[in-house]
Amino acid sequence: ELAETLTARARSHGHVLALDVPSGLDSDTGNVVGSGPAVRATHTVTFIAAKPGLYTGVGRDYAGAVAVAPIGIDTAGTPGAAHLNAPALFAAALPARDFATHKGTFGTLAVVGGDTGMCGAPILAARAALLTGAGKVHVGFLGSDAPPYDAPHPELMLHAAARLSLGAMDAVAAGCGMGGSASARQIVDAILRLHAPVLLDADALNLVARDEALAAHVAQSATARGAPCVLTPHPLEAARLLGCDTAAVQRDRLAAARTLADRYAAVAVLKGSGTVVAAPDGRVAVNPTGNAGLATGGTGDVLGGMIGALLAQRVPPYEAALAGVYLHGLAADTLCAQGDGPAGLTAGELAPAVRKLMNRLFYAPSYAA
């Protein structure tokens, strides 16, 4: 009864302060313990270190604004600890933007997908890649209704997927709107044999989940190219990859991401509230940016294009994933602060906001007068 009273106060614009963790919330998983109810706070002061459950699952809604009080205890270097994603984890890996550079310096990305009726998905990803700094971006369509060029961004080079010179690419992002045809399976198999960095999303993940040979190629490709693939599943796609149900994934999102990373020898980006990024070497981070404005079609395609662009710019896979999810969420936060969301925010609005954030946060000082 007390928990319900406090929650009602929080919902009616009153202030509710939780100490360490809102009562009834699992601080490890971000789930409500048992059948609830739990306290929904507007603010949480948590002690010693940030708790994963305050930043992922429903924990973000129950914790409100979180502040960490270390109380004099240093947790740096704790073995196996998850980290809160922040620029300090990836900024040093971003490429310099020297004057003596050219489009080849920042890599060539291929975005592959777009079965008939789904050609918008790779276009969204490719536009995002362009605005995230890739030097050149190709799009390979599987469908028969692909446009000849992209009018808003004629810089994009559009092709039939079968005519794309995959071996000439610095990175490949595959799966958005790809479908599950035999042709799709064939091109995913070819992509996994490349020595360039690879990101798999959406339908490419579904193909891997139901094809043992493709799944084996994902794990083996990490050894062949010397770097892991990046997998970007939402919870249902993650459940298919793990052979379980969505509820099992959501019960412990950190554990699910770690299992994906270990099973596929890949960097796993488990999307959702508090996206979890896990590397096969044991590193894991929970992302604190983003909001309900991202709950609309196409935002995952934008994220895939962003991470793909960073891979093409030779950012290591784990750091590329961290940077992509952080900036993707921060763009949504920035747009919402301007009144452009959360209701009605569209996927296509994210990439221009990402471009501004990247330049302001990481490149503006070097171009200051």
Rank of each mutant, 00 (worst) to 15 (best):
P228R: 03
V269R: 04
G274H: 05
T296P: 03
Q338R: 15
T289D: 03
P288T: 13
T259V: 08
Y326Q: 09
P280Y: 01
L327P: 02
V276G: 04
L270Q: 11
V230G: 00
D301H: 06
T346V: 13
L294P: 00
L303C: 05
A337K: 13
G341V: 07
A222K: 14
Q250M: 14
C244A: 11
L345S: 04
V315F: 04
Y264R: 01
L322V: 14
A292T: 12
A278Y: 01
S221D: 14
K271F: 12
G348E: 14
L242E: 11
T232N: 01
H234N: 06
A222T: 15
G243N: 08
A278K: 04
R253T: 11
L270G: 05
A279E: 00
D281A: 08
A265I: 06
L327I: 13
L241Y: 06
L322Y: 11
A351K: 03
D340V: 07
L311P: 02
G324H: 10
V315E: 02
T296A: 07
G305E: 13
G300N: 11
T275C: 11
T246L: 09
T232G: 02
L236W: 05
L270E: 12
A216H: 14
V277Q: 04
G282R: 10
S273N: 03
A331K: 08
A261W: 10
P228E: 08
A320C: 12
G329K: 01
A332N: 10
V284A: 13
V267Q: 00
V325A: 03
A312C: 05
Y318V: 13
D245S: 12
L335K: 03
A255S: 09
A227S: 05
V267Y: 02
A257G: 10
A222L: 09
A222G: 15
L260T: 01
L311T: 08
M306F: 05
E319K: 06
Y318M: 14
A266N: 12
G300P: 04
A238Y: 00
R258Y: 06
A215G: 15
S221M: 07
A261Q: 14
A268E: 06
C336R: 15
L330R: 05
G243T: 07
A224H: 11
T334L: 07
A239N: 12
V249P: 02
T299C: 14
L254N: 03
V276S: 05
G226D: 14
G226F: 10
I307A: 11
L236R: 15
A285P: 01
A347S: 15
V277A: 06
A351R: 00
N287K: 11
D333I: 05
A261T: 13
A337E: 15
A227D: 01
Y318N: 13
G298P: 05
G297N: 10
T296H: 09
L327G: 04
V276T: 12
A320K: 06
G348D: 14
L335T: 02
T296V: 12
A248Q: 15
A268V: 09
P316F: 01
T232I: 03
A320M: 13
R240W: 07
G348I: 11
G300Q: 08
V249C: 00
A332Q: 10
A257N: 10
A256Q: 06
G290Y: 10
L214S: 00
E237L: 02
